[in-house]
């Protein structure tokens, strides 16, 4: 399965560029590259619904981030204990990766999933044949309350964003 590794290396390179580049707009473009790479990775991993959804979400978040960063820049500063903090952060991240790698012994190897819960779902879905897309069947039949909760979270976010940013946007419009 070499394609997914190539895509992951591309995503890691784009993420490093997004993290380290000084210009904010270039950084936003970098995370856009990570998101498009993720969409292609979903397609390679046989998840077409997720690929479509990720593409739409990526474009929307890119527009929002560009709206936030346009004409606003920040010079890079190295005051404080910059070297000490950076080195200690990197050491702890390396420790995290080492322990995570050791814990991989406890989960199944890549490409051989132990499908147990989905088997129950699938046997029900196959008998009724309500929807050919199994992911949509699970979303609409077994996780319907969860989807309703997701919709209410979206409404709550819209109300929250309006409450936070209403005055700021009105001032923008007056300019």
């Amino acid at each position: 399965m070499i394609e997914i590794n190539i895509l992951l290396v591309f995503m890691i390179a784009a993420a490093l560029i997004a993290v380290q580049v000084k210009d904010l707009l270039s950084s936003v473009i970098g995370i856009g590259a990570v998101g498009i790479g993720l969409s292609m990775a979903f397609l390679v991993m046989k998840a077409p619904d997720l690929a479509i959804m990720q593409l739409v979400v990526e474009i929307l978040s890119l527009i929002i981030l560009i709206r936030a960063t346009i004409r606003k820049d920040l010079p890079f500063s190295t005051s404080g204990r910059w070297a000490f903090n950076t080195i200690s952060t990197i050491i702890f991240l390396i420790l995290f990766l080492v322990f995570a790698y050791l814990s991989f012994a406890n989960i199944h190897t890549f490409g051989n999933p132990a499908i147990k819960t989905s088997q129950e779902y699938l046997s029900h879905v196959q008998g009724k044949a309500a929807n050919l897309n199994i992911v949509e069947s699970i979303m609409l039949r077994y996780r319907a309350v969860d989807t309703l909760g997701e919709a209410s979270v979206l409404f709550a976010v819209v109300i929250g964003v309006l409450a936070i940013a209403r005055r700021a946007w009105r001032r923008d419009g007056a300019e």
Binding site: A47, L50, Q54, S118, Y121, V135, M139, R143, E150
Partner: peptide, 13 residues
């Protein structure tokens, strides 16, 4: 492939 993680990740996105 396992459809359950896909249904979970669809919400998470």
């Amino acid at each position: 492939v396992d459809p359950l993680p896909q249904a979970v990740a669809l919400t998470a996105i």
